[in-house]
Structure formats: C-alpha cells, structure tokens
C-alpha cells in the first residue's frame, strides 16, 4: 500500500475550509445543477410515460403540473438550466477557445444573463396569474 497522507480533519471539513475563488463556486454550482438536472431528466421521462395511457391520464397529469406549486418548481428548474447551460458554454470556451484569458468576465456574463432571463421567465410565467389574483382586490 502506497503512502496516503491523511487530512488533519474530516473530508467535508477540509473541503469546506478550502478557500474558494469565484471559479471554484462556478465549479461547485455546475456539479450541483448537473446532478439536479440529471435527476430531473429521470423524473421527466417517467412522467411522460402517461402519454401511452391515453388523453385522460395525460390531461390529469398536466393539470397537476399547472398548479402554482409546480409552476414555481418549474421556474426554479429554469434557473438550474440557465446556469448549467451558460456556465457549460463558458467551460467549452475555456477549454477550446481562449476563454481562460477572460473566464472571470465570462462568468460575470453567465450570472448576469442568467439573472435577467430568470426574472424575464418569471414575468412571462406569473404576470397573468398574479394580475388575475389582484384583479379581484382592485
């Protein structure tokens, strides 16, 4: 058995204590969002098997997915898609183009574009239901 240096404390503590640059956070977020999206594709494939069970089963499911809770979850899912897609493009630029020179600027763009599109999607998704909700009060 080769010599294996042991960290002075636990694995988690070592990782948490390690100083993180903006790029480290992007790396961590890319992994977390990636795992989340992978979990989601499993759910998505399973959910759509209802298509083979006829219109009734499918419409019932769509009714469930258009409830407010699922709408908000879908919106949050979009944030994972946005970050993972934009940061993925950044990774490709760093690996295959001269993105390494500007990776921090590109990261700013990733977060900026992400936040703008996330808010934009929120407006698109919730403008009507919110307007309807407040219409009764007005």
């Amino acid at each position: 058995m080769a010599y294996q240096p042991k960290p002075p404390e636990g694995w988690l503590k070592t990782n948490l204590r390690y100083y993180k640059h903006s790029g480290s956070w992007a790396w961590i977020l890319h992994r977390i969002t990636g795992l989340g999206l992978t979990a989601y594709i499993f759910v998505h494939i399973y959910a759509l098997t209802s298509l083979t069970q006829g219109p009734q089963a499918f419409d019932n499911e769509m009714k469930l997915f258009s409830t407010p809770v699922f709408k908000v979850l879908e919106w949050l899912l979009f944030s994972l898609v946005l970050f993972h897609a934009f940061n993925g493009v950044r990774i490709v630029l760093v690996d295959w183009a001269s993105g390494a020179k500007n990776h921090k600027k590109i990261l700013t763009l990733v977060y900026g574009l992400g936040v703008v599109l996330f808010i934009g999607m929120g407006v698109l998704m919730f403008r009507e239901p919110l307007a309807n909700m407040f219409a009764s009060i007005r």
């Binding site: 298509l51 499918f58 419409d59 769509m62 997915f65 258009s66 897609a85 490709v92 295959w96």
Partner: peptide, 29 residues
C-alpha cells in the same frame, strides 16, 4: 463538451416549442 453544446441548442428548441405557448405545447392532441 460536444453533447453539452448540442444540448444547449436542443434545450432552446424545447423551451420554445413546449413552453412559449403552453396550449400548443401541453395539450394531448
């Protein structure tokens, strides 16, 4: 990286077809 770039394109198409117009995206017919 190649599949990632491909997925960015496919996901954009998916969002426009399925979510830009929920009625045409999500009705059974």
């Amino acid at each position: 990286r190649i599949t990632g770039l491909l997925l960015v394109v496919v996901v954009i198409g998916h969002y426009f077809v399925m979510h830009a117009n929920p009625a045409s995206g999500h009705t059974y017919a």
